[in-house]
C-alpha cells in the first residue's frame, strides 16, 4: 500500500533545499576554517601547512584575543545588569500604564523599538556624529549643563572608547530586550495574578514572589541570547572605532576580520574563526546547562 507520509522521494525533496543551504553556507565554511587555520597563508599565493601553531599562538600568546573576550564580557555585564533589568522594569511600568490608556502604551512600545529596526550602519554612524568632539550632541549637552570641562573625544580616548561603544549597542538593543520581556509578562496567565492578589500579595510582593519566579524561563533565555550576541558583536565596532584606539574596543569578530583583510594573515584569521565558533557553541551549551531549572507548568 502507498503511504504518502513516508514517501521517501517526497521527504528528500522537502528536506534537501534547507539542508543544502545550511551545508553550503554554514557547515562547509566551518570545516574550511579548520583547514585554513592550520596554514600560514595571506589569502593569496602559496599556502604553508603549519599544524596547530596558529591555535597555540592565539590561546597562549595573543593578548588582543583575550582583550576581545574581556570586552565582550564587559558588554555582557552592562547588558545583563543594566539594560535587561531596566527593560523588565519598563515593561512592568508599561503594563501599569495600560490600565490608564492602551493607546499611549502602544505608542511607547513602538518608539522603544524604532532604533532596533534601523540599519546598524545608520545608527552607528549617527552615534559617531553624536560623539564627535567638535559638533557632537553629547559635548554640547555637557556644555549646556555646565560640565563643559568634561568635553572629550569620546571614541578616540582609550578611557571612554569602550563605554561609548557599549552605549551604542545598549541603546540599539534596548528595543529587543523590551520585546522579549513584554512578551513574557503578557504570557503570564491573568488568573495567577488575580489569585495572588486575593491571597493578599500586593504591590512589590506580587512582583518579587509571583511574577519574577514565573518569569525565570524568559529571563533565562533572554540573558543567554544577550550573552551570545555580546560575543558576536562586530558591526558597531567595525563602523565606529574598528577596535581602536590600540585594541581597547576590540571584539573577536572584528579582530579576525582585521587580521585577514588588513594584516594579510588569512590563516590566523581562520584559526580565530574556529575558536570563535567553539566559544559560541560552548557558551550556549554551558549556559543552558547551568541555568536549567524547572519552574513548573502554568
Amino acid at each position: 500500500m502507498y503511504k504518502p507520509f513516508s514517501d521517501g522521494k517526497a521527504i528528500a525533496l522537502m528536506v534537501l533545499p534547507a539542508v543544502a543551504f545550511v551545508l553550503f553556507a554554514m557547515v562547509a565554511p566551518v570545516f574550511l576554517s579548520v583547514y585554513y587555520g592550520m596554514t600560514d597563508w595571506s589569502g593569496m599565493g602559496a599556502m604553508e601547512y603549519i599544524g596547530p601553531a596558529n591555535f597555540r599562538e592565539i590561546l597562549f600568546k595573543d593578548a588582543t584575543f583575550w582583550r576581545s573576550l574581556l570586552n565582550a564580557l564587559w558588554l555582557a555585564i552592562v547588558t545583563i545588569f543594566f539594560q535587561n533589568p531596566l527593560a523588565l522594569l519598563v515593561c512592568i511600568m508599561l503594563l501599569h500604564s495600560k490600565k490608564n490608556s492602551e493607546k499611549s502604551e502602544r505608542v511607547f512600545r513602538t518608539i522603544y523599538f524604532i532604533p532596533a529596526v534601523i540599519s546598524v550602519v545608520v545608527t552607528t554612524r549617527l552615534w559617531v556624529h553624536v560623539f564627535n568632539p567638535t559638533y557632537g550632541l553629547l559635548n554640547r549637552f555637557l556644555s549646556l549643563i555646565g560640565l563643559g570641562a568634561f568635553k572629550i573625544d569620546w571614541l578616540s580616548n582609550p578611557r571612554t572608547a569602550l563605554w561609548s561603544v557599549i552605549l551604542i549597542v545598549i541603546w540599539q538593543g534596548f528595543g529587543w530586550a523590551i520585546l522579549f520581556y513584554y512578551a513574557g509578562l503578557v504570557n503570564i496567565p491573568k488568573e495567577l495574578q488575580e489569585a495572588a492578589r486575593i491571597d493578599g500579595a500586593s504591590g512589590l510582593k506580587l512582583y518579587t514572589k509571583v511574577i519574577l519566579p514565573l518569569m525565570t524561563p524568559v529571563i533565562r533565555s533572554t540573558v543567554i541570547i544577550a550573552l551570545i550576541s555580546c560575543l558576536k558583536q562586530m558591526e558597531t565596532v567595525y563602523l565606529s572605532t574598528n577596535g581602536g584606539p590600540g585594541d581597547t574596543t576590540q571584539f573577536l569578530a572584528n579582530y579576525l576580520y582585521l587580521k585577514a583583510f588588513v594584516y594579510g594573515q588569512y590563516g590566523y584569521g581562520c584559526a580565530l574563526s574556529v575558536i570563535f565558533v567553539v566559544v559560541c557553541v560552548a557558551g550556549t551549551v554551558l549556559l543552558n546547562a547551568l541555568t536549567q531549572r524547572d519552574v513548573g507548568e502554568f
Binding site: D7, I11, L256, Y257, S273, V277
Partner: peptide, 28 residues
C-alpha cells in the same frame, strides 16, 4: 512525515543557530 532521520535533520539545522555569521566570513 514519518522517517527515521527526522529528529536528527531537525536538530542539525537548529545547531546552525549557534554558528556566528562572522566566523563564516573568511572561509566563505
Amino acid at each position: 512525515m514519518q522517517w527515521k532521520l527526522s529528529k536528527a535533520v531537525y536538530g542539525f539545522v537548529m545547531l546552525g543557530m549557534m554558528i556566528p555569521i562572522h566566523a563564516t566570513l573568511l572561509p566563505n
